[in-house]
């Protein structure tokens, strides 16, 4: 067991954890932040993507102890109070989701994508989503959603 202290969505959280506990399970099981999902066990699907110190990371591939001292943002912490993040608006506006399971990870990946490139081309968006799998949408409306957010200045 080890003691970790992680700031999650702006709140400092401390806990005794098994050293093998994955960050995603720490968030889901211990903090009840179940918006972060698990869709695979080999880091391909990206459903578990969160921000660690401001950069997207797959929380199924990070041990909670590795995130000790870090700032983590999950999908629950993305909106500014009642005001949705531009990417959340974009996904809603452009029908960027169907079952919604990949969506939190998709959005958290797109945060970093737009941060690094606030005005991406369509191909850059498609390439930038290589770490996130969606089985419902065929991605076209996801691309539209990210373009929608980019147009509103999300990455700036």
């Amino acid at each position: 067991m080890a003691r970790v202290s992680i700031t999650v969505n702006g709140r400092k959280r401390s806990a005794e954890v098994e050293t093998r506990l994955l960050l995603v399970h720490f968030l889901r099981e211990q903090l009840n932040l179940t918006g972060t999902h698990v869709g695979c066990d080999t880091s391909q699907c990206g459903a578990c993507t969160v921000l660690v110190d401001g950069r997207s990371a797959k929380s199924c591939t990070v041990f909670a102890v590795q995130a000790d001292g870090a700032e983590v943002t999950t999908i629950e912490g993305l909106a500014d109070g009642d005001r949705l993040h531009p990417l959340q608006e974009g996904f809603w506006e452009e029908h960027g989701l169907q079952c919604g399971y990949c969506t939190p990870g998709m959005i958290m990946s797109a945060v970093t994508l737009l941060h690094d490139n606030p005005a991406p081309t369509e191909q850059q968006i498609r390439d930038g989503l290589d770490g996130n799998l969606c089985r419902c949408t065929g991605y076209q409306h996801i691309v539209n959603a990210i373009q929608h957010a980019a147009a509103s200045g999300s990455g700036r």
Binding site: R28, T34, V38, T74, L84, W92, E93, G100, Y101, T103
Partner: peptide, 21 residues
């Protein structure tokens, strides 16, 4: 028409079976 399901899903507030405790 924009979907009514989406506000909960884009904020991580949907309840899937693994979220049931």
């Amino acid at each position: 028409v924009k979907r009514r399901e989406d506000p909960r899903l884009i904020q991580g507030r949907g309840t899937y079976v693994d979220d049931v405790k």
